[in-house]
Design a protein around this nucleic acid. Structure first.
Lengths: 339, 339
DNA sequence: AGGAAAAATGGGAACGTTCCCAACGTTAGT
DNA sequence: ACTAACGTTGGGAACGTTCCCATTTTTCCT
């Protein structure tokens, strides 16, 4: 009855009136010029703001200063644990620097990609982290024109001049092959999703083939969309059921592949270890399946932080030449590569 | 050289000038009143906007209309696949209704919870999905005062009058017990995270105890923080290593518990099935571990959509009494409950 | 054909902030 | 004591929209 119900929060002007000061002073109090105010003013403003329940309106602030305080992130597949882990690192870093993260998931759909990019642009994000397959496109060009800092996650995008952060793919493939070779596996099958639209996948695949050639190892690579289970079953059967001269192992290009391959192996009844299995990306459950699945773990938090660092740097220095940051994977050896 | 570099996108005013129309007309064109414009105007505006690369500034729009176009979501643990799955559903629904989702992860930290809530408030989100442990607090009260629609995900929060969407916990526990009982397990251990701050956990625990009493089953419940592995090991050993009169099974209160418990069982060398294991929440890998882990799957997408529906409804009708939507789980029976 | 209603268009204020600049009060140097 | 310099404080414009209202043009009815 007595308490006035407000439909919207108090404004800076109401606080100013209540405290008997100017709106400029209130603005200073909530900005980073609080120290310029006399103790007396500070006290009065704090009191009024508290009483009125005032919260600065970041939308209004963003309009005037052109600073939205937002970092955008475009993720191809939010259900991929790797993406989530990196996103977590980015969010932490954002928080530490006073930014907020706005995440959009595209479900690998070019249309959503374009729409969400337009959306992020319309919110005037101050930086953008991209983890998508699509081509630059005009939406992205518009953003780039506006000098919005850009970081590519785990993939480089054609001509686009931008920073990029990700795994050292060559080193990862090397580490995997060295490990498998050291464990005595002589015939290898590399399983990947189609690499056309993701540079990382291409790079891993190339490196795999190159090393195979260089060292005269027997092996093959197959690239399949993961939703085509029969094709995957067929490819694996092809590899595992033919006569062999040496122990065989499968190398999975990422966590999703590991999951799909593991399901096929289970259905077939193969024994891990006898059939070697190794995956890039560490997942919660890799230690739980059979004797454990050997993986190469990516330093996801570090990747996230590095991405954010790149953005921040470029925010202050637009002209810095594009840079690549590559992290080394960590080998987690388990029973799936022990014979 | 010739192309003028713009640091920021064109404004509505520039487009208007370029097209020789008023800013109002341009505003109408990009708003939902396009049909009110003559074909001629529409053509000119489209041309100018295209040439100038104009994108409506949602920040400015939000300021004037008080419509941020943003839905906020506060997640206790973004690395929990269940949360991500629900979030995915919500994002889809947002998209379908012209909203964007702003997700904040709190890492179960009350401080971050408070900060992020203030943040979302400062962006004037038009709706809020909460999946956190904390108590309402003044930040939340401020939001509620402003008539911001609120949906609680998987937990109700004290006195807070808000909609809530989640699993039908009673039915889930019933289904679990029926299944375990039907499979011949006579002694049960229910493993949960501490229930103090999450109503769902409480409810499941209560129901478990109630049914135990009602049916004279032997069983026990233990509540432990998951980062305390030794305690969990101890509790499980306590249960499994004492003499028993009937087959024993563990029931895990959620996906995180399932993971932690499974790790302990693996370290102990127990055989799934002989030792029964069942979990609430279906996870990617539940079919891969040993003979497979029996789970109760939650309809995550549906939960997400329902949450969004609640928000939208309340956006139009502030006075509707709070409502609870409860979904039934789906039993996925696997080898871990087959003796 | 005359006028009223309907449709199309434009001008200006407002949203809540920040920031530039001006005005005031105080201190200190000569 | 007079002025220069500085520290505080306030007024007003601007940010890019939307929306109310006024104005002009078209349509249509009798």
């Amino acid at each position: 009855m007595t308490a006035p119900t407000r439909r919207t929060g108090a404004t800076i002007l109401e606080v100013a009136r209540d405290a008997g000061v100017s709106k400029t002073s209130v603005s200073r109090y909530f900005g980073d010029e609080r120290s310029r105010l006399s103790p007396d003013l500070q006290r009065r403003i704090a009191a009024s703001a508290g009483r009125l329940g005032y919260r600065p309106n970041r939308i209004a602030r963003g309009l005037k200063g052109g600073q939205s305080g937002l970092i955008g992130m475009l993720v191809a597949d939010i259900r991929n644990p790797f993406s989530v882990a990196v996103m977590h690192g980015i969010e932490q870093a954002c928080r530490a620097h006073g930014f907020s993260l706005m995440v959009c998931n595209t479900d690998n759909d070019p249309v959503q990609e374009r729409d969400h990019l337009a959306l992020l642009a319309s919110y005037r994000v101050e930086g953008l982290v991209l983890n998508v397959a699509g081509h630059p496109g005009e939406e992205l060009a518009a953003l780039a024109d506006r000098d919005t800092p850009l970081v590519l996650l785990d993939r480089s995008l054609g001509e686009l001049e931008a920073d990029m952060v990700g795994l050292d793919n060559d080193r990862a493939i090397d580490a995997a092959l060295d490990h498998l070779h050291g464990q005595g596996y002589g015939e290898l099958l590399y399983v990947s999703e189609p690499p056309e639209r993701a540079s990382s996948r291409q790079r891993r695949l190339e490196r795999f083939r190159a090393r195979l050639d260089a060292e005269g190892l027997t092996g093959d690579a197959c690239c399949l969309p993961l939703d085509d289970t029969p094709a995957l079953e067929h490819a694996i059967a092809d590899f595992l059921d033919r006569p062999a001269t040496a122990p065989r192992a499968l190398l999975c290009a990422n966590g999703n592949v590991t999951l799909a391959v593991m399901r096929v192996l289970q259905a077939r009844g193969d024994t891990l270890g006898t059939t070697g299995l190794m995956g890039i990306d560490e997942l919660d459950w890799c230690g739980l399946v059979g004797p454990g699945i050997t993986t190469l773990a990516q330093p996801t938090e570090a990747i996230g932080r590095a991405a954010m660092d790149s953005l921040l740097e470029r925010l202050t220095d637009t002209r810095r030449p594009p840079r690549q940051v590559r992290f080394s994977p960590t080998l987690i050896a388990r029973g799936s590569t022990r014979r």
